[in-house]
Amino acid sequence: MSVTAQLIGVDVGKAQLWLSVNGEPAQRCANEHSAIHEWLQSLPAPAAFALEATNDYHLALALEAHRQGHRVYLISGYRLNRYRDSIGGRAKTDAGDAQLLVRYLEREHDQLTPWTPPPKGYQSLQKLLRRRARLVRARVMLEQSLGGVTELQASLKPLIRAIQRLDTTLQRLMDKAIATAGWAAHRRRCQQIEGIGPITAAALTMAFHRGAFRSSDAFVAFLGLDVRVRDSGQKRARRRLTKQGDPELRRLLYMAALQAKSKPAWSGYYQRCLARGLACVQALNALARKLARLAFALMKNQTEYQPHIPCEQT
C-alpha cells in the first residue's frame, strides 16, 4: 500500500456513516447514495477504506468506493471488538470505532484481502434467502406461540397456509434467479448429495460464486464452519465455530446434516464422530463441513456425485 494513500475508517449505521480520515476525529455522512458519491468525489486520490460489515448497510459505500477506484476492506464486528480489547480500549462509540478501523487497517493491512463486489446473481439470491429465513422464523414463532390455543386454530391455519404460499413464491423466484445467473448445473450437483435439498443447494451455489476460493478450507471458512482453536500449555480449550459467514447458510447446512446423518452414505461418518467423543451438535457440525467440502469439490471440478455406500448397508 502506498505510504501516501489515505486510510479511512467507516463505522456503518442504517442512517449515517462515521468517517475518520487517517485517524482524525470522525465526521458524519448520510448513508445515502447521493451524499456518499459527493463525499467520495471530494477525496484527492484513491484511498483505502476499512468498513465494519453491518447487515447490508455498508453496501452503498462499498460499491460506490470500489467503482471510483478505491480499495475496500470489510472487517467483521467480532474481529474489531477483539482488537479493541487487545489494545485496552474501554469505550465503544461510533466515532471511536471509525478511528479504530483506521488503526486496524494501518497495522493489519498485509493480512487483509481487498473486497470485490459480488456478482449480481449472488446479491439477488442472498436477498431472497434472507427474506425466506425471516418468513420461516415468523411461521415457526406463530406455530409455537399460538399452536396450543384451541380457540385460535380456525384463524391460525389459513394464516400458516398463506405463509406457505409466500414461501412457495420465494422458492420460484430463487429458481428464476439461479437460472438467470446460469448456475442451474451447480445447484443440481449439490442437490444430488444426500440430505441437501433445493434451498440448501441454492445457498451453497450462491456461496461458491462469491469468490475464487483457493480450496475447500477457504470455502468452509467463508461459511463460518471452520473451528477456532485456543490452546495454552497443557490446557486444550473447547473447539468452537468461527461463525464468520452468513448464519442462514450455516443453519441450512446444519439442517442438511440432520437429514444426512441417517442416510447410509453418512451414518457411519456421523457415528465415528460420536465415537471420538464429540457431542451431537459437534458431530452434526462436522458432517455439515463434510457436506460443504463435497459440494465445493463437485462445483469446482464440475463432476457428478458418486455416493459411497458401505458394503454392509447395500
Rank of each mutant, 00 (worst) to 15 (best):
R67N: 10
E304I: 08
F49Q: 05
Q27D: 08
A257Q: 02
A133G: 01
A65N: 06
Y270F: 15
W39G: 04
A35Y: 09
R103F: 03
R228I: 06
D11F: 04
A201P: 01
S216D: 12
A203W: 03
L291H: 04
Q271Y: 08
Q244S: 12
M174A: 06
L166P: 06
L291K: 00
R107F: 02
S232M: 10
K243A: 08
Q244P: 00
N55P: 02
Q234M: 15
V227G: 02
R289W: 01
E248H: 14
A279L: 11
W266E: 00
E106F: 08
V21N: 00
W183E: 07
A260F: 04
R230M: 06
A5D: 10
D85F: 00
Q191G: 10
A221H: 05
R214A: 15
E106A: 15
A292T: 00
F213G: 01
R139D: 06
L159M: 12
V149Q: 14
A207I: 12
D231I: 09
L7Q: 11
M206W: 00
D167K: 11
T150W: 11
A5L: 12
Q111N: 14
K176V: 06
K92R: 15
L253P: 02
V21T: 09
L152S: 13
L294A: 09
S34C: 03
Y254S: 00
T150F: 08
L142V: 09
L146R: 15
L294M: 12
R230P: 03
A45I: 01
F222N: 06
N285K: 08
Q123W: 00
R230N: 11
A53C: 05
Y78P: 03
A181M: 13
E248W: 12
T93P: 04
R210I: 04
G147K: 12
A65I: 05
R236M: 10
T113C: 06
L61F: 03
R107G: 02
G88P: 05
A218W: 01
I163R: 10
G148W: 09
T150R: 15
R79H: 10
F208D: 09
Q191P: 00
R139F: 09
E304R: 11
P25L: 09
L59T: 08
L287P: 04
A62W: 04
R187T: 05
L19H: 10
Q171T: 07
G148V: 11
P114R: 12
G121L: 07
E312R: 15
R79K: 14
V140S: 14
G233Q: 11
R189G: 01
G77Q: 00
K300M: 07
R239E: 00
M299I: 13
L43W: 11
E64Y: 01
A65G: 05
R276I: 02
R189S: 12
L170H: 10
K235D: 02
I8D: 07
Q192G: 06
H33F: 14
T169Q: 14
L223K: 02
Q111H: 14
S34Q: 07
Q234F: 09
